[in-house]
Write a protein that binds this DNA or RNA. Structure first.
Lengths: 129, 129, 129, 129
DNA sequence: GTGGTCTAGACCACG
DNA sequence: GTGGTCTAGACCACA
């Protein structure tokens, strides 16, 4: 999987890395057990500081997305996540302000749902899960 | 409308103010032409520095949510926003990573749409728009 | 002449009054010797504070645009201005940043001159002076 | 590029910084991709507070003149701006009062256009665009 | 080191 | 009283 950084984005590099790996897992491009490049390797490939990649990996591990083996290296660990019951609250906190903003931009409920649906399909063409 | 700040939140105070005002406009609690507290007043009420409120207001004004009326003070502008055609792209950029995250937490498309729908209804009980 | 204030403008009320009176003089709507409404009268008409009108009038007088007689009231005094030799410097200071901005918005010299010409004609249909 | 602040000017420091950078871009002294000094650096160099520079930079960024590159720092963006169709209205609003003032100072249309032309040439010796 | 945010105290012109 | 601007000192996460 290729990670591409936008250095002029408002989103931090750290978060861009995390987002793209999570997206990779979500779309199935990265499967459970698959290897990710080492910290040094990825840092070099995308031209950023090692510390930045290190932090992204650490946070992904803390959230259960990946495992870091001393020998096998960095391994995807998708299924670990699914348990979190509180995620609905987190989701609401993240989505509420976006919905409010959308309404102010003239979208009604159907518009918003339709957009979400499109974006979802755009991410995962045939809904696999 | 009462604005309440969570000082231990990871969300910036600045952003909390913006979000709550946008939400107020979206839900209809704040109507076009209605007055908002002055910078100093709000700063005092919620216990933050004047400059923090000032920045939030400045950004809201730049985005067209509010305007400064020389006599009425700070007033809600709302409808001004609705035109932006590019908003769908902005929406996609904001929602894509959330969708990816949701999938990793075990939500499929229907689950996600259902959650969005619930959150939307939660925000605007009877969909007015 | 009717003065119209935009209370949501970034331009100060004070300055809006000045600008419109100067424009009135420039376009010939206000002629030398003509009367302007009293401070109280104008303040009442356009719904602003007396002090604001007072300040606008004072500055117009300081710049030589009007005279304030105790008995005749406020009188237009156009021709007084014309002597100022330094005005070209003032003009340059005011216009330079606008030109720079125009260039950044893609206007070349001809475009800019053409726009200025149009705006000028728009202000004074048949160039009288 | 050297930025020079006139502390006794009526023009805000904030605006002086913006104007000079925009002028730099317009005249080609600052080219697309070129680096600008960091906020702290510039603040120190011209002897003003960091926050003043920060505000100027923020506004320049909001207007598309510059962008923050995570590695290169603050860089010139230029061409991004050129699209704005509404700019002619903005231009008219800014120039109209200046034209009115010029007329009152005895300039006719030809005088005014000639002055603008001179100022333009003064800014960009051989018209490159 | 950077930009971003928050706090605090001050001055100004405006209304 | 208001918003706008400037200064000063501080903390943070990021790179």
């Amino acid at each position: 999987m290729i990670i591409k950084i936008n250095f002029s984005s408002e989103t931090t590099i750290n978060k861009q890395i995390k987002n793209q790996i999570i997206e990779g897992i979500a779309t199935g491009k990265l499967r459970r057990g698959e290897s990710l490049p080492s910290i040094r390797r990825l840092a070099c490939d995308i031209g950023v500081n090692m510390h930045t990649v290190n932090k992204a990996y650490s946070q992904l591990r803390a959230d259960g997305y990946i495992l870091i083996h001393k020998q096998k290296g960095v391994i995807v660990n998708a299924d670990q996540i699914r348990k979190n019951k509180k995620y609905k609250n987190i989701l609401e906190e993240k989505i509420s302000p976006i919905i409010a903003e959308s309404i102010c931009h003239g979208l009604n409920k159907d518009d918003f749902i339709k957009q979400c649906s499109l974006i979802f399909e755009n991410l995962i063409p045939e809904s696999k899960i």
